[in-house]
């Protein structure tokens, strides 16, 4: 658009604002269009009236905006707007000079979580495959349990069937495994810095144990075929394997500074004791 189009309501001289002039053509056009549609349920005469109105309104409208939009000048009334607030002070978090910012102070980069997830996911394959090999002499057993008997809808599979190789089982298992490992890795990357001490203990042992426990109680419902054949010892072992590897990878990645000098409590936004005391001091 031309430059004067760029700001259609620009004021030429101070004290006056050019605004689009009021016009009846839109309402006439709308009414005409409605009549056109209404003629289907009424009678053709209504439609003819509608068409006439539409044509007249369109011509009128074009004349309103062509070649230049019709404007009218509205006088500007001096009005000093004073932006004030009674709340002149701002509470601060006292742990740093930066009062308002992002949480937490330093953290693992998000990529570390992804790396941890990938590493843990790869590490986890070994105990799982070992389990299949030792119990069924098939490296595909664990894979098919997850992918075939679990998610694909194999009806009533036999153990021998599960132990054999199946493309559908393999790719479904790989997708599930990869997605869940990545997500859990991300979660580790996000949550581990909130428990600043013992990342291995928390992420490597406590979390897998909790996770295994939860799965143990609900897996029979999520997936009975899987649950019937699962060996919980092996399962817990592979979870721990994942947890420790992922935790190590995450924890070993250097932390990066975020501009968030806050303790865990404030980082979570859950605890605000420090926050409250600061406020109260300020209020006094």
């Amino acid at each position: 658009m031309s430059s004067e189009e760029k700001n259609p309501h620009a004021s030429e001289n101070t004290g006056v604002v050019a605004l689009p002039a009021n016009t009846a053509w839109p309402v006439v056009l709308a009414f005409g269009a409605t009549l056109c549609f209404a003629s289907l349920v009424m009678n053709p005469g209504v439609g003819i009236a509608g068409i006439v109105l539409v044509v007249v309104a369109l011509v009128g409208w074009v004349r309103q905006i062509f070649p230049h939009e019709h404007h009218e000048d509205v006088p500007m009334v001096a009005h000093a707007t004073i932006v004030t607030t009674a709340r002149t002070e701002v509470g601060r978090i006292q742990l740093s000079e930066v009062q308002r910012s992002y949480l937490p102070i330093e953290s693992y980069p998000i990529a570390s979580g992804i790396k941890g997830g990938i590493a843990g996911g790869i590490a986890m394959i070994f105990p799982a495959v070992l389990f299949g090999w030792l119990t069924q002499h098939s490296i595909w057993y664990a894979v098919n349990l997850l992918g075939g008997a679990g998610a694909a809808y194999w009806t009533n599979p036999t153990t021998a069937y599960i132990a054999a190789f199946h493309w559908s089982g393999l790719w479904i298992a790989v997708v599930i495994h990869a997605v869940i490992c990545l997500l859990v890795g991300l979660l580790y990357g996000a949550l581990l810095p909130m428990w600043p001490r013992h990342p291995i203990l928390l992420g490597g042992i406590l979390a897998p144990v909790l996770w295994t426990g939860v799965l143990h109680s609900v897996l029979w419902f999520i997936n009975p075929a899987f649950a019937n054949r699962i060996a919980w010892g092996w399962f817990a072992a592979s979870q721990l394997f994942f947890g420790i590897v992922a935790g190590l990878v995450v924890a070993r990645t250097g932390k990066i500074q975020t501009r968030q000098p806050l303790p865990f409590a404030l980082r979570m936004g859950i605890e605000a004791k420090e926050l409250m005391s600061t406020e109260q001091e300020d209020e006094k």
């Binding site: 709340r87 002070e89 701002v90 509470g91 601060r92 949480l103 998000i110 810095p193 980082r267």
Partner: peptide, 15 residues
């Protein structure tokens, strides 16, 4: 007369 501390967000928590 005081506003609480302003916190814009937290990538970690949101993640």
């Amino acid at each position: 007369t005081i506003e609480p501390p302003q916190i814009y967000g937290s990538t970690q928590v949101e993640l």
